[in-house]
C-alpha cells in the first residue's frame, strides 16, 4: 500500500480564484485535482497538477510518452495505491469529496470511477464471465439480468456481433483488438459514473476505433469520460477538452477547439504539429 499525504487546498472545486491552467469557469466539474504531486519512490512523476474534469464531457489527455498521463489517470481511482512505495500529495475530489480521505471505500470508488487499461487485460475466463465480473461482485445474481447486461455492454462496445455465438469461450482466445473492446464492455457493465480510458483504441483497426469513438459520443450523455490518446486526430475529433502533459506537468488545458487551433504554449504547438514527442 502506498502512503498518501494530504495537503488540503482551501479553495472550493470551481472557485474562480484558482482558475489555473486546468480550470474552465462556469461549468460543473465532477473531478477536481488540486496541486497533485505524485512520487514513485523518489521519482516525482507528477508536479502540481491542477485540473477539473467536467460532467458529461470528454477530456483528452495528450503528451509524449512517459510524461505521466497514465500515472495521472490512475490517481483518479487510486489505482496507484497498489504499487508499492508510491506517494501522493495535494487533493483530488470527486463531487466535492476527497477520494484520498481515510474513510473512503476504495472498492466503491473504483466502481464509480471505472477504468479501461492501456493494455487489454481480460480475465482468464469466458467472455460471459468477464462481463459479469463487476455486476457479480456487486451482488447481482439474477441470470436473466446478467444476460441482458452482457448483451447491452457488448453491443455498446461494438463486439456483440463478433462474439454472440461464443460467449462461453475463453476471452483469451480473442484478438488483441477484440480483447480491448471486451475490457471496455466489462467496464461499462459495472455502470460507473466516470470512465477513464487509457489509450483504448491503440490496438484497434480504424473501423473499431471509429465505433469506439461513436460509443464515447453516446456515453457522453450519461458519463464523464477521460481518455488518454496519442492520436491527435482522435483527440481533436471527439474530445471537448484537452490537457497537454509534459514531463509530469500539465502544460496547457482548454477547450479542444482552442488547443488545436490557438495553443498558448509553444511546447503544445510543437507537440500537436508533430515537431517532437
Amino acid at each position: 500500500m502506498s502512503t498518501q499525504e494530504q495537503t488540503r487546498s482551501e479553495s472550493p472545486a470551481t472557485g474562480p480564484s484558482r482558475s489555473g491552467p486546468g480550470t474552465i469557469p462556469g461549468l460543473s466539474s465532477r473531478i477536481d485535482a488540486r496541486d497533485v504531486d505524485f512520487f514513485y519512490g523518489d521519482f516525482q512523476a507528477l508536479r502540481k497538477i491542477n485540473i477539473s474534469l467536467y460532467d458529461r464531457k470528454i477530456t483528452a489527455l495528450i503528451g509524449p510518452s512517459g510524461c505521466g498521463k497514465s500515472t495521472f489517470l490512475r490517481t483518479l481511482n487510486r489505482m496507484n495505491d497498489l504499487i508499492e512505495g508510491t506517494r501522493l500529495t495535494g487533493s483530488i475530489q470527486l463531487d466535492g469529496a476527497d477520494i484520498y480521505a481515510p474513510q473512503v471505500d476504495v472498492a466503491d470508488l473504483r466502481r464509480r470511477v471505472g477504468m479501461v487499461f492501456q493494455r487489454p487485460n481480460p480475465f482468464p475466463m469466458s467472455i460471459f464471465d468477464n462481463i459479469c465480473y463487476g455486476p457479480r461482485i456487486h451482488g447481482l445474481k439474477d441470470r436473466k439480468i446478467l444476460e441482458q447486461i452482457v448483451e447491452k455492454s457488448l453491443r455498446q462496445a461494438a463486439l456483440w456481433d463478433e462474439v454472440k455465438d461464443k460467449l462461453r469461450q475463453s476471452a483469451l482466445a480473442l484478438s488483441g483488438g477484440q480483447q480491448q473492446r471486451l475490457c471496455i464492455a466489462r467496464t461499462l457493465a459495472t455502470e460507473p459514473e466516470v470512465i477513464l480510458m487509457d489509450e483504448p483504441a491503440s490496438a484497434l483497426d480504424p473501423n473499431s476505433t471509429h465505433r469506439i469513438e461513436e460509443l464515447m459520443e453516446e456515453l457522453k450523455q450519461d458519463y464523464t469520460i477521460v481518455i488518454v490518446t496519442h492520436n491527435m486526430q482522435q483527440a481533436a475529433r471527439c474530445s471537448d477538452f484537452t490537457g497537454f502533459f509534459l514531463k509530469g506537468e500539465l502544460k496547457e488545458f482548454g477547450a479542444t477547439d482552442r488547443i488545436f487551433t490557438k495553443p498558448e504554449q509553444r511546447e503544445t504547438e510543437d507537440y500537436i504539429r508533430g515537431r517532437f514527442g
Binding site: 497498489l82 466502481r111 477504468m115 480475465f123 482468464p124 463487476g134 457479480r136 467496464t187
Partner: peptide, 28 residues
C-alpha cells in the same frame, strides 16, 4: 500478470474478491 489483478481492482473488487475470483482461477 499485474494487469489482470488491476483489471479486477479497477472494477471495484476487494482484495479477497480478487484473490478468490481472479487470482486462483487464473493460477489454476
Amino acid at each position: 500478470p499485474r494487469d489482470v489483478r488491476e483489471g479486477s481492482y479497477g472494477l471495484g473488487a476487494t482484495h479477497w474478491e480478487t484473490i478468490w475470483r481472479v487470482l486462483l482461477p487464473a493460477a489454476f
